[in-house]
Amino acid sequence: ALRETGVIEKLLTSYGFIQCSERQARLFFHCSQYNGNLQDLKVGDDVEFEVSSDRRTGKPIAVKLVKIK
């Protein structure tokens, strides 16, 4: 799958939103999709991810998040 990059724009307890670098979009992500310690993730962090689609709504979502050092 194609990896994309973006910036954490909003972060809540169990989910957040990424502002994409490659496209004009804000993508939802669930915190279970982040492969690191959530305490280390904060607004403004650069992340890399794959784009999938929500099974219920069909909308694009970010999965398999990795923080870019």
Rank of each mutant, 00 (worst) to 15 (best):
Q33L: 04
I68M: 03
L38Q: 12
I68A: 09
I8Y: 01
F49Q: 00
Y34I: 15
L2Q: 10
Q39W: 12
K67W: 03
F29M: 02
I68Y: 15
V7D: 01
E22R: 08
D45N: 10
E22M: 04
D40T: 09
V7Y: 06
D54H: 09
V51G: 07
R56W: 02
V43F: 02
L27C: 08
K67F: 02
S53A: 11
K64H: 11
L27H: 02
S21D: 14
K42F: 07
S21K: 10
C31T: 14
T13C: 01
D40R: 05
V51K: 08
A25F: 08
G58K: 06
Y34V: 13
Y34K: 15
R55F: 07
K59G: 12
I61Q: 12
Q19W: 09
G36A: 12
P60V: 13
S21C: 06
V63C: 15
F17S: 02
V43P: 11
N35V: 11
Y15S: 03
Q39K: 06
I61D: 02
I8M: 02
D45H: 07
E22L: 07
E9Q: 11
H30P: 10
L65P: 02
A25G: 05
T57V: 05
G36M: 05
N37D: 02
A25L: 12
K59Y: 04
S21V: 07
L41A: 04
F29P: 00
V66R: 06
F28I: 06
Q33G: 13
F29Q: 00
Y15A: 07
K64C: 08
L12E: 10
G58Q: 09
K42P: 00
S52H: 14
V51H: 11
K64G: 09
C20R: 15
E9H: 14
R55A: 05
K10M: 07
K69S: 13
S14W: 08
V63G: 04
H30W: 13
P60K: 03
L38F: 12
K59H: 13
K64F: 09
V43R: 09
E48D: 14
K69T: 05
V51C: 13
Y34C: 10
R3W: 02
R55C: 13
K64T: 15
L65A: 12
R56T: 09
A62D: 02
L38C: 15
E50T: 15
I8R: 00
A25Y: 15
Y34Q: 11
A25K: 15
T13Q: 02
G36T: 06
C31N: 15
S21A: 10
C31V: 08
D54K: 04
A25E: 13
F49I: 01
E9K: 10
T57I: 03
L11W: 05
F28K: 13
Y15R: 10
V7K: 15
D45V: 05
R56L: 14
K69V: 03
T5V: 05
Q33E: 14
V63P: 01
A62F: 01
R3I: 03
K64Y: 05
V66G: 08
L12R: 05
N37E: 07
Q19L: 08
E50K: 06
S21L: 13
R26T: 11
E48F: 04
G58R: 04
F49E: 00
G58H: 08
Q19A: 07
K10V: 08
R3H: 04
A25N: 03
D45Q: 11
F28L: 14
E4K: 09
R3D: 01
Y15V: 09
L27K: 01
H30E: 15
G58Y: 11
G16M: 01
L2H: 15
V63H: 10
L41N: 00
S14R: 04
R23H: 03
S32D: 13
V51Y: 12
V51L: 10
I61G: 07
R56P: 11
G36C: 03
F49K: 01
Y15M: 04
G16W: 00
I61C: 11
D46C: 13
G36H: 05
D46L: 11
T5K: 15
L27F: 08
D40H: 05
Q19N: 14
V43Y: 12
I61F: 08
K42W: 03
Q33W: 15
L65E: 02
F29G: 00
V43S: 06
V66F: 08
V63T: 15
I18L: 10
V66Y: 14
L65T: 04
D54S: 13
T5Q: 09
K67A: 11
Q39F: 09
S53M: 09
K64A: 11
D45L: 07
E9M: 07
E50Q: 14
S21Q: 09
R23D: 06
L27I: 12
V66W: 10
E22S: 10
L41M: 05
T13K: 12
G36V: 06
R55K: 09
D45E: 07
T13R: 04
N37P: 14
K59D: 08
T5C: 08
I68W: 05
D46G: 13
V51I: 11
I8C: 03
V43N: 15
V7T: 14
L2A: 04
L2Y: 08
T5F: 05
C31W: 08
Y34D: 09
D40A: 05
I18P: 00
G36P: 07
C31A: 13
R23K: 06
S32Q: 05
R26Q: 15
Q39H: 15
V43A: 13
Q39E: 15
K10A: 11
L2C: 03
Q39R: 10
H30F: 08
S32M: 04
F29H: 01
S21M: 06
A25P: 11
T57M: 12
S53R: 09
G6R: 00
Q24H: 04
E9C: 12
G6W: 00
N37G: 08
R3T: 04
S21G: 07
T13G: 03
S53F: 13
E9V: 04
T13N: 11
K10P: 00
E9A: 10
R26M: 15
T13Y: 09
D45F: 02
V51Q: 15
V51N: 04
E9F: 15
L41P: 02
E22D: 15
Y34E: 12
S21F: 04
E4A: 03
S53I: 14
Q24G: 15
F49L: 02
P60Y: 09
E22V: 04
P60A: 09
V43L: 13
E4V: 08
R56M: 10
K10I: 08
H30I: 05
S53D: 14
I18Q: 00
E48S: 09
Y15C: 08
S32L: 08
S14T: 03
G6V: 00
D46A: 12
G36D: 13
R56V: 09
G36E: 13
R3N: 02
C20F: 11
D54C: 12
I68P: 10
L41I: 05
C20P: 10
K59W: 11
T57P: 02
K64N: 12
H30T: 12
K69W: 14
I61E: 12
L27G: 01
G6S: 00
V47W: 00
A62T: 02
K59Q: 09
L41D: 01
V66S: 07
L41V: 12
I68H: 06
D40Q: 10
L27E: 01
R56S: 11
Y15K: 05
K42R: 12
I18T: 01
A62V: 10
L38M: 15
V47A: 01
E22W: 04
K64E: 14
K67E: 04
L38S: 15
E4H: 06
I8N: 01
T57A: 12
V47D: 01
S52G: 11
C31S: 12
S52M: 13
T5R: 11
G16A: 03
F28A: 10
D54E: 10
I8P: 00
R55Y: 05
L41K: 00
I68T: 09
R56Q: 10
S53H: 07
A25C: 10
A25D: 03
I18S: 00
I8G: 00
K59R: 12
D40S: 09
I61N: 14
Y15N: 04
L41G: 00
R55H: 08
V63F: 08
L2R: 12
C20Q: 06
V43Q: 09
D45P: 00
E4F: 07
Y15L: 04
S52W: 05
Q33I: 04
T57E: 11
R3P: 02
D45S: 13
L11D: 01
A1T: 14
V63N: 13
E22Y: 03
L27Y: 14
T57H: 08
E4W: 04
K10E: 03
S52R: 10
V43C: 15
Y34M: 12
T5L: 06
K59A: 07
F29W: 02
E48C: 06
F17Y: 01
A25M: 14
T5A: 13
Q33A: 15
D40I: 04
G44T: 03
K59S: 10
K42G: 07
L65S: 02
C31Y: 09
E50P: 00
G6N: 00
D40K: 04
T5G: 04
R26Y: 05
S52K: 15
T13D: 15
Q33R: 14
S14V: 03
G6I: 00
L65G: 02
Q24S: 13
A62N: 01
L38K: 15
F28D: 08
S14N: 03
Q19F: 09
K67S: 14
L27R: 02
L27D: 00
H30M: 12
E22G: 14
S21I: 07
V43I: 12
I8K: 00
L65H: 02
V51F: 07
R3F: 02
V51A: 14
